[in-house]
Computed example of a mutant assay.
Amino acid sequence: MNSNPADQGRGKSGEGQVQGPRQAPRTFDDLVAEAEAAPTEGWDFSWFEGRATEERPSWRYAEAMARRLARASASLDIQTGGGEVLASAATLPPLAVATEGWPANVAKATALLHPRGVVVVAAPEDAPLPFADGAFDLVTSRHPVKPRFDEITRVLRPGGTYFAQHVGPASVFEVVEYFLGPQAEDVRNARHPDQERAEAEAAGLEVVELRAERLRMEFRDIGAVVHFLRKVVWMVPGFTVEAYRPRLRELHDRIRAEGPFVAHSTRHLFELRKPE
C-alpha cells in the first residue's frame, strides 16, 4: 500500500484562486464496483494510492534483500508473488530461481522475471521444495504463508542464509474481527516470531537476527477494504461483497462519519544461517 498520505503534495487554496465545483462523495455502490473490477494478481499495491496507507518496517526489506542478492551465487525466492520484490533488485546472482503457487501469479512472475534470467517454478506452498540438497547459498521470502524451515535448511548450502520478512501474529485483525468477530487466542498468536524462532532452530538453523514491529494502516474508503480482502484472500476466507454487504455498508457509513478505519499490521525480519 501507499506509505504516504493521500493528500501529500496538494496545494492549499489561497486568496484569488478560482474554486471549482465540489464533487459529491462517491457512492457505496460506485466504490465497491470499482474495487471488484480491479485485478488482484501479483503483489503490486499501487491501486491503493490515495485510498489506503500502511507504515513500512524500519529495516527496508527490499533494499536489504537486494544487497544480499548482489553477493550471492545461487538464490531462491520462495512464494515470490508476481515477482515484484525480487525484480526490484538491481543485481541478481548468476543462478536465480523463484517459486510461486498461485497460477495467476506464476504467469505474472514469469513475464516479469524471465527477462532478468530468473527461473520461475510453479510449486504449491505446502509442498517440499523441488530442488536438490544444498542448491542455494541464499533463500529469501517476503510474507510466506507458512515457512517450511526443514525444507529451507535442506536446500541451503552450509553457511547459507535465509533472509525473509514474515507476517506476524494478529496482523490486520481489526479488519478480520470486524467481519468475523473475536478470534481465539491460538488464532491470534499464530505466526508469532518466538514460535517461528523455535521451529527454525529445531530445523537446524541459527538465528542471526530477529526483529519485530507493529505498523499503522488506514483504509480511507470502502473500496480499499474490498480490494484488500479480495487480494489478501486468507484474511476473511471466502470473502465476497454479497456475503458481507450489510457489514460493508455499515463500515462505509462509519468511514464517512468518523474518518479512516485504522488497523495494524505486524511484521518480523528473520536472518537465519545454516551452520558450516
Rank of each mutant, 00 (worst) to 15 (best):
K146C: 00
L95P: 00
E63V: 06
E63M: 00
A132Y: 06
W102L: 08
R71H: 06
V121Q: 12
L113K: 08
V172L: 13
E125A: 15
P128I: 09
T153W: 14
A135V: 13
P169C: 05
S75V: 08
G160W: 11
A33Y: 05
I78C: 07
A38V: 06
A35I: 11
W43N: 15
P128T: 09
G101L: 10
G82Y: 09
P144W: 03
R51H: 11
G160L: 04
D126Q: 15
G42I: 00
H143F: 13
R148C: 05
V167D: 07
F45D: 03
A132E: 13
A104F: 00
P130A: 07
S58Q: 07
W47D: 03
R142M: 02
H143K: 00
A96T: 15
R56F: 02
D133N: 14
Y162L: 10
E151W: 12
A96Q: 15
A66P: 02
A135S: 15
L113M: 11
L138E: 04
Y178T: 06
V172S: 12
R71G: 01
F173C: 06
V119R: 15
F173K: 04
D77N: 13
V120H: 08
P57N: 01
G159H: 07
F173H: 14
M65K: 02
A33L: 12
Y61W: 05
A104N: 10
R67Y: 00
F173D: 11
A104H: 08
T140H: 04
W102E: 10
P39A: 11
T40C: 10
G159A: 09
E125G: 15
T161C: 04
R67D: 05
G82S: 05
G50N: 10
G117R: 13
E125C: 01
A98R: 12
G160N: 04
I152Y: 13
V119I: 08
F136D: 08
D137S: 08
T161N: 00
R116W: 07
G159C: 08
E54V: 07
W47V: 04
L76G: 09
P147E: 04
R68D: 03
G168T: 06
Y61N: 02
